[in-house]
Every structure is written in C-alpha cells, then in structure tokens.
C-alpha cells in the first residue's frame, strides 16, 4: 500500500568522491526522490545518527538519474555536520528528507536562459541545465583553479560554459557577474537563474532589474527543520506595502528576483 504521507527515506550511498579540497560529490539511490525532485530543490540530510550534531544539513540536489534511481549532491565540508557526512562510507544508509522547497521555473518558451553560479552555488544549476538541454549560457565562478568542479558535467550539456576564477588562475579572470552583464547588455538572454553568495545574487538582481529581464535567485540561510515549521530561515520578501519574513526552506529556496529584498 502506498501511504499518503511523506517520510524520510533511507538511501544507500553508492558514490563518493572528493573532487576539490573539501568538496564532496556523493550519489545515493532513491526511486522516490528521483520521481519527485525538481531543479532547485534540496535534501535535508541527517549526517550521522548522533545526538551531538542534531540538525539535518540542507544540501541542494545537483542532478538525478531517473533510470538508475540516482540522486547526486555535492557539498563543502564547513563544520561538524558536513564533516560527518563526508566520512560516511559507500553502502551505508543515509536518512534523507526531501525533495524540499520550491524549484526553478523551467519554461521552454524562454528563448535563451542564462545560468549563473558562484562557488557552492553552481551545484543545483547542473540539474537545471539538464532540464533545459536547449541553447543556454552558463557562467560559473570559483575562487581559484583548484576549487573548480563540475566543469565537464556542464560542458556536456552546454559546451560554451564559461568558467571564471576570482584570482584569474583558471578560465576568465574576475567575477562571473561581469560576463553575465555583457551578455544581457546584448539582449542574449530572456531569463536568468542564479545561485551563489549574496553579493553575487544582489548584483544579478540589480542587473536584471536594470535590463528588464526576469531572474530567479536561490537563497541560503541557516535552517532548522527544513519543512517550514521552525521559522528560523527567514528572508525578506516584498509585499505591496513593505516586506515580510518568508522562509527559505518552504517559500524558497528559489524566489523571483523582484520579490527578494536584500539588506543594505
């Protein structure tokens, strides 16, 4: 009998690789998640069965393979939770809640989307690129050469993917937002999708607003439950008169750019 209720899934870890210093590329098996997942959504993962590190860690879905029932996610070791997750072994079961949150709007009536990601923000864009598979522009920014990941994965879908590094050690030198601006100045794109650090999102938002192009931003905030109950992951969203706190886990993580109000 199929239950009408959602539940956390126990998923076998089938792949794990450290693809850059502190960046782990992991794949789990879950028919349920591959069936439901949309680009931009995330998983809330119990890193280890321990009381010392209680909270799940929200990690965006990097890609899915429906045939193989594989769910891929990439994460950076930032603290105790992600360190525990990186230490998990192949064959072990991972307690995963999801897919959670809103997704990027995939609409084939857009003639040429631009995808822009910075640092760990590039991961969910691979799933999005796979969903489009049409002509698009992809701009990926990293701090330095050794942190560049997923380059080949993106180039398989979009051969013209542009890589930029802040220090110029690989690809184009400087911030990716400059590359996006050149593009939209020429009217090449009619929708922009962005995920990355807040300064990058702010820049994308103001640029798209200036050129009158819709954009979707994937936001990040410290989370608790991941399902909209604890209300900790607040973000400012515009209302007709002012703004209100919505929540990244349930109302987001993906918002339309013109909804989001960043603090000065």
């Amino acid at each position: 009998m199929i239950s009408i209720y959602k539940r956390p899934y126990l998923c076998t870890i089938v792949k794990k690789e450290e693809t850059a210093p502190g960046i782990f590329d992991m794949t789990i098996i879950s028919e349920e998640i591959t069936r439901q997942a949309k680009p931009g959504q995330f998983l809330n993962i119990r890193c280890a069965d321990t009381l010392s590190t209680l909270l799940r860690r929200p990690i965006s879905i990097c890609d899915i393979d429906k045939e193989k029932k594989e769910v891929r996610f990439v994460f950076q070791v930032k603290g105790e939770g992600t360190r525990l997750l990186a230490n998990r072994s192949l064959g072990e079961l991972l307690d995963v809640l999801g897919p959670l949150g809103t997704s990027f709007t995939v609409d084939n009536s857009f003639s040429r989307p631009a995808l822009i990601g910075g640092g760990i923000g590039v991961f969910p864009l691979l799933f999005l690129a796979n969903a489009y598979r049409s002509s698009m522009d992809v701009f990926l920014g990293f701090r330095t050469k050794e942190m560049v990941v997923l380059e080949q994965d993106f180039k398989r879908i979009c051969p013209d993917t542009v890589i930029a590094t802040d220090d110029g050690s690989y690809g184009v030198s400087g911030y990716v937002t400059r590359l996006l601006e050149e593009n939209i100045k020429q009217g090449k794109n009619d929708i922009v999708y962005a995920c990355g650090p807040e300064p990058m999102l702010k820049k994308v938002q103001s640029m798209c607003s200036a050129y009158g192009i819709p954009c979707q931003l994937s936001l990040e905030q410290r989370m608790g439950c991941g399902i909209g109950a604890c209300l900790v992951c607040a973000c400012k969203i515009r209302t007709p008169k002012a703004w209100e706190y919505k929540h990244v886990c349930k109302d987001g993580p993906v918002f339309w750019g013109n909804e989001v109000l960043f603090d000065e």
Binding site: T53, L55, Q221, R222, V232, C233, A234, C235
Partner: peptide, 9 residues
C-alpha cells in the same frame, strides 16, 4: 520576529 540568523547548532 527577529533578524536572521535565528538558529545556531
């Protein structure tokens, strides 16, 4: 409510 971050582990 308060400004985020609102949670710390």
């Amino acid at each position: 409510g308060n400004r985020p971050p609102r949670i710390a582990e």
